[in-house]
């Protein structure tokens, strides 16, 4: 990223190749809309170049990038270009995935996502960033404007709620 900030814009292609799946995954899981997630992914990387000079290397590139990702998503919903979220994402994904081989893992993924979607949006986001994107609590707390201890408490509660949804509400057998 330092090279991109220094004017080597072409290197941004490498950053895109490395991180676009993470960015897209987050946006898809949060929004449940493939088309929207793809559009916002494009916007995120355009902003990454536009604001490249604000990257000072003091936090990890991924944490800096996710500040842009999160703000892009929030700004989008403020503008409300898309009138509602598309819940059909899960069904579309299911049809595509049925044709694939690793059905057991896919089924687990889908159950997990369905349970995750039943959590309040803040708790869902905390789990997506910490468990799926493997970001540190210190990075997420800075990103979400929470103290690290407050974030850990919320993450702890979210985990318990998620298991409760899976086992007691969805009757998922472990």
């Amino acid at each position: 990223m330092s090279l991109v900030a220094g004017g080597e814009i072409k290197k941004a292609a490498l950053l895109f190749d490395r991180y676009h799946a993470n960015v897209y995954s987050y946006l898809l899981r949060v929004n449940k809309n493939k088309m929207l997630a793809e559009d916002l992914t494009q916007n995120v990387f355009e902003k990454m170049i536009k604001y490249r000079n604000s990257y000072n290397g003091k936090k990890s590139f991924k944490a800096w990038l996710f500040t842009i990702v999160r703000n892009t998503n929030i700004d989008h919903h403020r503008k409300r270009k898309y009138s509602s979220l598309d819940d059909s994402y899960m069904q579309v994904e299911s049809k595509e995935k049925d044709a694939q081989e690793r059905l057991e893992v896919k089924e687990k993924n889908e159950k997990l996502m369905a349970a995750l979607n039943r959590l309040p949006s803040e708790e869902k986001e905390i789990l997506i960033l910490s468990k799926f994107e493997k970001m540190k609590y210190s990075e997420i707390s800075a990103l979400m404007g929470l103290t690290e201890s407050a974030l850990k408490v919320k993450a702890h509660r979210s985990i318990k709620k998620l298991r409760n949804i899976l086992v007691n509400d969805m009757r998922y057998e472990y």
């Binding site: 814009i9 072409k10 941004a12 292609a13 895109f16 190749d17 676009h20 799946a21 993470n22 897209y24 995954s25 898809l28 899981r29 493939k34 997630a37 793809e38 992914t41 494009q42 990387f45 355009e46 170049i49 893992v105 687990k108 993924n109 997990l112 789990l127 468990k131 799926f132 985990i159 998620l162 298991r163 899976l166 472990y174």
Partner: peptide, 27 residues
């Protein structure tokens, strides 16, 4: 334990190739 393992196993979603094409064109 299994729920944690499932979360660990979740793979990143992949966008359509159009996203990469569009971005490289834009770049």
């Amino acid at each position: 334990q299994e729920m944690y393992q499932d979360m660990e196993d979740v793979l990143p979603e992949t966008p359509s190739s159009e996203v990469a094409t569009k971005f490289h064109e834009w770049l």
